[in-house]
Amino acid sequence: MDDRTPAVRLEPWSERDAALLRALNAPELMEHLGGPETEEQLVRRHRRYVELSARPVSAGRMYRIVLLPEGVAAGSTGFWERDRESEGEAVYETGWTVLPAFQGRGVATAATLAVLAEARAAGLHRHLHAFPSVDNAASNAVCRRAGFELLGARDFEYPPGRAMRCNDWRFDLRRP
């Protein structure tokens, strides 16, 4: 990070973050993820996020991204376990969404670097992957800036039933 990278704090996802999740469900933010979710889907997602954040951190964690020094919620990020049967290993996966008012300021990169530190400290898996759509230039740039290695493009199903082409970015959590 340099002097222009904003300071962020990651706070574990909690019951009070339902309104943030609704704000992050805006069409322009969900463009590369199959579009906005229904209210029922949001309620289920919020419950999953709260439950994940209540488990031991080695299982992963969802976070509210808080921009400092303002102390305002700027988005969400997290990491969770993903079984990669075809590659023969379990890994962590990460993802993020930043509210439009905070985009283009390095918030996603700062939050991703903070998640890398959290996943490294959790210590369960060697690799953390991100799977942004090949068409999502901003998220692919975050991966590049955060030091992920591009493994290539692959087909991915997200949301369930919707095929998308993603870049598979990997970060080795054991590297210094």
Rank of each mutant, 00 (worst) to 15 (best):
H32F: 15
R162V: 14
E40K: 05
R44D: 01
L24F: 02
D168A: 13
S86N: 07
H129W: 15
L33M: 12
R144T: 14
Y63F: 14
Y158L: 13
G88N: 04
R84T: 01
P6Q: 01
H129Q: 14
G88D: 02
P176Q: 12
A7W: 12
T77G: 04
G75P: 02
M164C: 11
P159A: 09
E39N: 10
L67C: 04
V72T: 10
F131S: 10
V107C: 08
G104S: 02
A122P: 03
D172E: 11
Y49K: 12
W169P: 00
M62L: 03
A108S: 08
S86M: 12
S86T: 07
H127P: 01
R175G: 09
V43D: 04
T38I: 07
E85A: 08
H125E: 07
A153W: 14
R9N: 05
L29T: 06
T38F: 02
H125M: 10
A101F: 06
R82Q: 09
V66E: 10
A117K: 05
P36K: 03
L113V: 05
R105D: 11
E149S: 04
W169E: 01
L99T: 00
C166V: 15
W96K: 05
H46T: 06
T109S: 08
R61S: 10
Y63N: 03
E37A: 12
E85I: 10
L33T: 13
R162G: 00
L124H: 03
E85T: 04
A73T: 09
R44F: 08
A119I: 06
L116C: 06
A117T: 01
R126H: 07
D135E: 15
E37S: 12
H127V: 13
A122R: 01
E28R: 14
G123H: 08
P56L: 01
V134F: 05
R9L: 07
V50I: 03
A59F: 06
W80K: 02
V107P: 05
E118V: 04
